[in-house]
C-alpha cells in the first residue's frame, strides 16, 4: 500500500552497501552524523520520525493487541525502561521541535506530541502518572523497535524489549539470552570475530556517545511484522512472489535496519533501537548507483548468508531484474 510519496521514502532511505560485495563486519560508527546519499539524507538523529509515523504506530498497536508477547520486561529492567523513555522522547523532541517537546519541571517531565495529540505529565518511576508501563509507552511514541540489555557478570543480557517489526526472530524466545547467545544462529560472525569484537565494544560503550550500524535483508510486500511468530503467514510469500514475475520488482523490498547502540546513563543498560525501512526494487532501481550495486551484492553473496537471510528463492530473480533495469536504462540513455 503506497501511503507515502515514493520520493520521500527514497530520499530518507539508508542504502546499506558501502561496497559491491557484502560481508558481516563490526560496522559500528558514531551516531548523529548525517549521511548524504545519492538522493537525500539520513542519520542526523537516533530517533527517526517520518511520514509513516501515525500508520506504523497504529500497526504496532494492532500487533500488540493480537500478541502481547511482543513486549517483554523482566522485573529488574524497570529502571532501564524509564531511562529509555527519557532518551527516546528527548531525542524525538530534538529531532522534531515543531511538533514534539519534552520539558522538565522540578520532579516531573511534560511530554507534548502534536502528531498524536498526546500531552502527558509524568514522574520518573511512577507508572500511574504515565498511564502505562514505560517501555510500552515509549513504543507508542516512536517507530523504533527497542531492546534493552543489562550488563552484568561480563555479559549483556537482553532482558527487556518491545519488538513488533522483527526480521525473522522472536523476542519472546530470545529474552533472557546473552548477546553472544542471541547471535549464535548467525553464520560466520563468531568464527570471523565479528560478534566477539562487537561484544567487547558494547561492554565499554559510554553514555552520551551513541553509535549505529546497519543490517539488511529482503521482504515480500511492505510487511513490517516479519517475526518468527507469524512466519506461517509471510513464509509462503517467499516462494509465492515468483508466481508472477511482472509484480516481482514491486513486491520485493530491500529491507534495512538502522540500529542505534546507546548506553543509558541512569541504569547503565544498553539500548538497541532498530528502525526498519523498506523500498521496493522498482523504486530502488531509479537510482543508478543503487541498482548496479545491489545487483552485484546479490550475485556475490555466499550461499550460507543467502539462506540465513531468507533470500534463497529470489536471490537470482531479484539480481536478474536489477540487471535488466540497468540494461534498459543504458539502452534508453537514462
Amino acid at each position: 500500500m503506497n501511503r507515502v510519496a515514493a520520493s520521500d521514502r527514497l530520499s530518507r532511505f539508508p542504502f546499506p552497501y558501502p561496497q559491491d560485495h557484502y560481508r558481516y563486519s563490526t560496522n559500528v560508527e558514531p551516531a548523529r552524523r548525517p549521511v548524504i546519499t545519492e538522493v537525500g539524507e539520513w542519520g542526523r538523529w537516533t530517533i527517526d520520525v517520518d511520514d509513516e509515523y501515525e500508520a506504523e504506530l497504529r500497526e504496532r498497536e494492532e500487533i500488540l493487541v493480537a500478541d502481547p508477547s511482543r513486549c517483554v520486561v523482566l522485573a529488574h529492567m524497570r529502571a532501564a525502561c524509564w531511562d529509555s523513555l527519557l532518551e527516546c522522547l528527548g531525542e524525538a523532541a530534538r529531532a522534531n521541535p515543531a511538533t514534539m517537546s519534552l520539558t522538565r519541571e522540578g520532579n516531573s517531565y511534560v511530554w507534548s506530541n502534536a502528531r498524536l495529540g498526546e500531552e502527558r505529565r509524568f514522574v520518573i518511576g511512577d507508572e500511574d502518572t504515565l498511564g502505562a508501563e514505560p517501555l510500552a509507552y515509549t513504543g507508542s511514541q516512536v517507530q523504533e523497535d527497542i531492546v534493552l540489555l543489562d550488563q552484568r557478570e561480563g555479559q549483556l543480557w537482553a532482558d527487556a524489549g518491545l519488538v513488533t517489526f522483527a526480521a525473522d526472530w522472536s523476542l519472546r524466545f530470545d529474552v533472557g539470552m546473552t548477546f553472544l547467545e542471541l547471535h549464535g544462529p548467525v553464520p560466520r560472525v563468531h568464527v570471523e570475530g565479528v560478534i566477539p569484537r562487537a561484544h567487547r565494544f558494547l561492554l565499554r560503550l559510554e553514555a552520551h556517545h551513541p553509535y549505529r550500524r546497519t543490517n539488511w535483508t529482503m521482504s515480500v510486500d511492505r510487511r513490517l511484522d516479519q517475526s518468527t511468530e507469524t512466519y506461517p503467514e509471510w513464509g509462503p510469500d517467499r516462494l509465492g512472489v515468483l508466481e508472477n514475475p511482472e509484480l516481482l520488482p514491486d513486491r520485493l523490498q530491500l529491507r534495512v535496519e538502522v540500529q542505534h547502540l546507546i548506553r543509558l546513563p541512569g541504569s547503565g543498560a544498553i539500548m538497541f533501537l532498530i528502525r526498519t525501512s523498506m523500498v521496493p526494487l522498482r523504486e530502488l532501481a531509479t537510482v543508478p548507483a543503487w541498482r548496479t550495486r545491489m545487483a552485484a551484492v546479490l550475485r556475490e553473496l555466499p550461499q550460507d548468508m543467502v539462506d540465513y537471510k531468507g533470500l534463497t528463492h529470489f536471490r537470482d530473480p531479484a539480481a536478474a531484474w536489477l540487471e535488466s533495469a540497468q540494461a534498459a536504462a543504458i539502452a534508453t540513455g537514462a
Binding site: F173, D174, M177, G184, P232, H313
Partner: peptide, 21 residues
C-alpha cells in the same frame, strides 16, 4: 533449531514447510 533459551528451558522450533510448494 539450534537455538536454546535458558529462561524457557526450551529449544526453538519453527514451521519447517512454510516455504515448500
Amino acid at each position: 533449531y539450534h537455538h536454546v533459551s535458558r529462561l524457557h528451558g526450551a529449544y526453538l522450533g519453527y514451521m519447517v514447510d512454510a516455504e515448500e510448494p
